[in-house]
């Protein structure tokens, strides 16, 4: 036992010596950030004649790189909205069931995304290619990368009962992970939507009266520019 212990101790000593002497940082694990109840333009009822939801139509814009809201849908000042939305400060935006990325037809950034068919944990590395900017998705009539259609984008519409009058709810599609190149065009993130309902309700907890358009999601942002989602190497 001691025969092994001594060289091991020596190695540790040498390594720690190197650490202090050499500034080359060691990789550290990446852990998911959790966002709960990001408010994305809740409706104020429905138009009685058309049935269309009454809403502001404004997005809440979020920076995955800085883990903060850049611009809330509650901000109605056109000048402020123009300043913040026409920037590369945000990566991902939410309004109702629509999710946009800061690039293409959605913003001035270089963001592009894809929906990977794998669980959040299974996506250990961002794909090398396959990213689309908003407006470039020919498979979706609105062009959004995450097509706001049940079973095509991030959600499935699940009816409460066989009677369509009972309505339904949006359930995030299991095994679908959003992977994006951020607005900086240099770093990657992966995102999993966990709930569309206030309080992060799971599917079984949702009722017809649960307030919707409150996003809960988890994400990992890789700041070092690699496609690795397991560890990151701190930049000097």
């Amino acid at each position: 036992m001691t025969r092994f212990l001594l060289p091991a101790l020596a190695a540790v000593l040498v390594l720690s010596a190197c650490d202090s002497a050499d500034p080359d940082p060691q990789p550290v694990p990446l852990t998911p950030s959790i966002v709960t109840d990001l408010v994305a333009d809740p409706t104020a009822g429905r138009n009685p004649t058309t049935g269309a939801p009454i809403q502001t139509g404004r997005f809440t814009l979020y920076s995955l790189r800085e883990n903060r809201v850049v611009l809330s849908y509650t901000e109605a000042d056109a000048a402020v909205r123009q300043r913040d939305s026409a920037s590369t400060a945000w990566d991902i935006g939410f309004q109702g069931q629509r999710i946009i990325f800061n690039g293409g037809t959605s913003g001035p950034g270089s963001a592009a995304a894809q929906l990977v068919e794998a669980t959040f944990g299974e996506v250990t590395e961002a794909p090398a290619d396959g990213y689309l900017a908003d407006g470039a998705n020919a498979a979706c009539s609105s062009g959004f990368v995450l097509c706001p259609v049940s079973g095509q984008g991030w959600y499935t519409y699940v009816p409460f009962s066989a009677d369509p009058n009972d309505g339904g709810f949006l359930s995030p599609r299991a095994g679908r992970t959003i992977v994006l190149r951020n607005a900086d065009g240099a770093t990657y993130s992966k995102v999993r939507i966990t709930s569309y309902y206030q309080g992060g309700l799971t599917d079984a907890q949702i009722t017809p009266t649960s307030p919707s358009r409150y996003y809960s999601f988890e994400f990992i942002h890789q700041p070092d520019g690699s496609r690795n989602f397991q560890t990151t190497t701190p930049q000097p």
Binding site: E117, T119, F120, G121, R173, A174, G175, R176, R192, T194, T202, D203, A204
Partner: peptide, 14 residues
């Protein structure tokens, strides 16, 4: 292997 489930705690699996 392209169908996923989600347990009541939100964990996803194939």
């Amino acid at each position: 292997g392209t169908v996923f489930g989600r347990d009541p705690d939100g964990r996803e699996y194939r």
